[in-house]
């Protein structure tokens, strides 16, 4: 397989974007999934729907509204201008924010399901054994949810690597800055470089396949909950 330096740069950018987004996503998704799984609230249906929305929404719709919000006349854009921060569209930071929103359901939902499978009783047992709320989360919930959290992180990472429409709308097609691997394939396709497009596409195909096998093994072979 022959990949040139531009291809490797786009792959590096894809991985950097996916890694950054996944780390931030986990920090947001774990508490959010915990709230959705265990806290009774009237707002749960609304929040769940908002989190799940990117699953069914065309990326162009999400990209369009994010672009408006991040633009100089949008709310986020206005805040950035007031704080003296560069505007987010067509920047790596803008891509990270868009990816976090777009991959949110792929991370939140598996973690939420893992927490539901573990159940509230496990935390209640820990409470009766003298564990304070934070202690319960770190000593009981997260260790038992380890496999689910890793699976969710891998899925979120892989999904971000595979993003196209949203990236194109928010980041454009700037080499070394916002030109990720999926967009590079589209560039090759537009200029009839099918062989180069094929090499990069095969790389992404192989990467996605390996990731899915990894997630499958984690969920069905290593999960201690599946033994009981």
């Amino acid at each position: 397989m022959m990949l040139n330096s531009d291809d490797w740069a786009s792959i590096y950018l894809s991985m950097k974007l996916a890694f950054t987004s996944t780390v931030i996503l986990l920090l947001i998704a774990i508490p959010l999934a915990m709230w959705l799984a265990f806290k009774p609230s009237n707002f749960k249906a609304v929040i769940s729907s908002l989190v799940t929305l990117p699953l069914i929404l065309p990326p162009t719709v999400l990209g369009f509204y994010l672009l408006l919000a991040m633009g100089p006349h949008g709310l986020v854009g206005q805040i950035c201008l007031k704080l003296g921060i560069p505007l987010l569209p067509f920047s790596f930071s803008g891509l990270v924010i868009a990816s976090i929103i777009y991959s949110m359901p792929f991370v939140v939902m598996p973690i939420q399901n893992t927490f539901l499978a573990i159940g509230k009783t496990s935390l209640e047992v820990a409470a009766t054994l003298g564990a304070a709320p934070t202690d319960r989360i770190f000593s009981v919930l997260l260790p038992q949810a380890k496999i689910g959290i890793i699976s969710a992180a891998v899925l979120g990472f892989a999904h971000t690597v595979g993003e196209f429409g949203l990236i194109l709308m928010i980041g454009g097609n700037i080499p070394q800055k916002t030109q990720v691997a999926a967009i590079q394939i589209y560039n090759y396709f537009e200029i009839y470089e099918y062989s180069q497009a094929n090499h990069l596409a095969l790389f992404l195909l192989g990467f996605s396949f390996v990731v899915l096998i990894f997630v499958y093994i984690l969920n069905h072979k290593l999960n201690p909950l599946s033994h009981n």
């Binding site: 409470a127 003298g130 304070a132």
Partner: peptide
């Protein structure tokens, strides 16, 4: 007073050992 400060021992109906 939250449960972890009550010094109670509770054995639940469905046995809940920590699986990890």
């Amino acid at each position: 007073v939250p449960p972890h400060k009550r010094k109670i021992g509770y054995v639940f109906q469905d046995i809940q050992l920590f699986k990890h």
